[in-house]
């Protein structure tokens, strides 16, 4: 995964780059919009982190170019309390935004979310029983109550719901939640599924996850 970081503050640029490298991402660094566009002439990026306040072309204009012309999802960095920035950011097509000063962990989390979303070709909202799963905002709604599941549980539940009444194999679920190169134990999946079951019960969901021994799981509506 390659991430483009555009910020005129060299220290922030470096800090973000170090953390991204550490997480296993490749990083392209640019001081301003012109530099970023030059870099993209012979390279590609999966995601861009763009600061709003930059000399020359500002972050919004760059975002529009990146999303429209290059199809690269953008996370905007905005200053604190600039509400109009947020709206303008979405208008210019950014996927997400982060308010400065931010914690690096927050940025990593948002990057992970945007990358997951970008790689998905399924319907945005999936319905099963009284469940409504918004795959864009990562929200699950049951009886008008919104629940934010931990990310991995969300991935599992959304795949099972999208394939409701069909058996989903363990391997597919593991790939969806942890990625293809997952090397953890099979037990982890069981634990997560159990937790999902507890939560569904707690919020009165009218669906149930059944275990199909040796194969996988199936989500069914209950009456």
């Amino acid at each position: 995964m390659k991430i483009l970081v555009v910020d005129d503050d060299v220290h922030i640029q470096k800090l973000v780059a170090i953390h991204l490298n550490h997480e296993g991402y490749q990083v392209l660094r640019a001081n301003n919009a012109q530099e970023a566009l030059m870099l993209l002439e012979d390279q590609t990026a999966d995601l861009a982190v763009v600061d709003v306040m930059m000399p020359g072309m500002n972050g919004f204009e760059l975002t529009r170019l990146l999303t429209d012309d290059f199809g690269i999802p953008v996370i905007l960095l905005t200053a604190k309390g600039q509400l109009s920035d947020k709206e303008q950011g979405f208008l210019s097509g950014s996927e997400d935004y982060i308010v400065k000063p931010f914690e690096v962990k927050e940025l990593l989390f948002r990057i992970a979310v945007v990358l997951r979303r970008a790689g998905r070709a399924m319907e945005t909202v999936v319905k099963a029983g009284n469940l409504s799963i918004d795959r864009k905002s990562f929200e699950v709604e049951i009886n008008q109550e919104t629940i934010l599941f931990p990310l991995k549980e969300f991935e599992l539940l959304s795949l099972l719901s999208a394939r409701k009444n069909k058996i989903t194999q363990r391997a597919a679920l593991i790939e969806q939640a942890w990625g293809a190169d997952y090397e953890g134990s099979e037990q982890t999946l069981n634990t997560h599924i159990n937790r999902i079951r507890d939560r569904l019960k707690k919020y009165g969901a009218t669906v149930e996850i059944q275990t199909i021994r040796g194969i996988g799981y199936i989500l069914e509506e209950t009456k």
Binding site: E103, K105, L108, E145, P150, L151
Partner: peptide
């Protein structure tokens, strides 16, 4: 991200 880190469910 903090919720995720502590595996806290929020509704």
């Amino acid at each position: 991200w903090r919720l995720e880190e502590k595996e806290i469910e929020i509704s």
